[in-house]
C-alpha cells in the first residue's frame, strides 16, 4: 500500500526563507516518505510555492537543509544538483511546456539529454508516457493546441520521462474545471499506486486533498511555519487549532471577522 512506508526520501531540516527583512517561514522541519502523496496547503502568501522552489533547487533558503538520500541539495555542487534533478520531476502551475516544441519534442528533451537511447526506443517511451496520461496520438501537437487539462497531463508525461523518484506539483488544479481536476486526481492516484512515485503537491482544492493526500502539511503566514501535519480526515475531525479546523471544514474563523 503506497504511503505506508517509513523510509524518508526527503528530509527538510530547519528551513528558513526570507525576502529581504520579510520572513516567509522559519525553522520548518518535516520528512517526505518514500511512495507517499504529501500535500502542502495554506493560505496565499504562506510560502508554499517558496518551499517547493527550495525543494526543487530553484531558490536558496536563508538557512536549513533539504536532504535527498543524505545529500543536502541546498549546498550541493552543480554535479550533485544535476543528479538530484534527474531523479525528480516537476509539474509547474502553468504546465511550462516548451511552446516552440511539439509534445514529442518536449518529452524527448530530458530523454535525449540523459538517457542516450536509440531514436526508435525514444519514440516508444514517448508513446508510453503519452498513453499513461491518456494523450496517446498527440505527439505531434504543439502545446498551444491543447486545453488546460491536457497541458497539465502532458506536463506530467514530461515530468515522468525519466521515471523520477519524486514528483513535485505546484498548484495542481489551479484554473481547471472540476471534471478535469477529478481526472487529474485519478491520474495521480493511479500513477502513485502503479509506480510508487513519491509526490509532493501544493494545492488549495479540499476535494482533491481528501481524495489524494496520504498526509497533509499546513503552513501558516502568521505562525511562519507548519501548524498542522497529519491525515486529512484526522485533521478535519480532530484538529483543535481554529485555523486548521476552518480550512478543513471550509468555514470562516468567526473570531477574526
Amino acid at each position: 500500500m503506497p504511503g505506508e512506508s517509513k523510509e524518508p526520501i526527503l528530509i527538510v531540516e530547519g528551513l528558513t526563507a526570507r525576502f529581504g527583512d520579510n520572513v516567509v517561514f522559519e525553522n520548518v522541519n518535516f520528512k517526505v516518505y518514500r511512495g507517499e502523496i504529501l500535500v502542502v496547503v495554506g493560505a496565499s502568501g504562506c510560502g508554499k510555492s517558496t518551499l517547493l522552489k527550495i525543494m526543487i533547487g530553484l531558490q536558496t533558503p536563508a538557512a536549513g537543509k533539504v536532504l535527498y538520500q543524505g545529500m543536502d541539495i541546498v549546498r550541493a555542487t552543480e554535479k550533485e544538483l544535476l543528479s538530484y534533478r534527474q531523479n525528480i520531476g516537476v509539474l509547474f502551475q502553468s504546465s511550462a511546456l516548451f511552446s516552440s516544441m511539439t509534445l514529442k519534442e518536449n518529452i524527448a528533451l530530458p530523454l535525449e539529454e540523459y538517457a542516450r537511447l536509440d531514436p526508435a526506443m525514444t519514440d516508444m517511451i514517448i508513446k508510453m508516457k503519452l498513453g499513461m496520461v491518456n494523450l496517446a496520438g498527440y505527439e505531434n501537437h504543439s502545446p498551444a493546441e491543447l486545453s488546460g487539462g491536457m497541458k497539465k497531463r502532458a506536463g506530467i508525461a514530461r515530468a515522468m520521462a525519466l521515471d523520477p523518484q519524486v514528483l513535485f506539483f505546484d498548484e495542481l488544479s489551479a484554473g481547471l474545471d472540476p471534471i478535469t481536476a477529478v481526472e487529474l486526481d485519478e491520474l495521480i492516484i493511479k500513477t502513485n499506486e502503479a509506480l510508487g512515485t513519491t509526490m509532493v503537491i501544493v494545492t488549495h482544492e479540499l476535494e482533491s486533498i481528501y481524495k489524494i493526500a496520504h498526509r497533509v502539511l499546513m503552513l501558516d503566514k502568521q505562525a511562519q511555519g507548519i501548524i498542522a501535519e497529519g491525515k486529512p480526515q484526522e485533521l478535519k475531525n480532530n484538529a483543535t487549532d481554529p485555523r486548521v479546523r476552518s480550512f478543513f471544514r471550509r468555514q470562516k474563523i468567526i473570531s477574526l471577522i
Partner: peptide, 16 residues
C-alpha cells in the same frame, strides 16, 4: 515570455 510561463524554471529543474 518563457520566464513568465515558468519554462525557464522547467529547463532548470530538468537539469539544463
Amino acid at each position: 515570455t518563457m520566464m513568465v510561463n515558468e519554462e525557464v524554471d522547467a529547463l532548470q529543474t530538468m537539469g539544463f
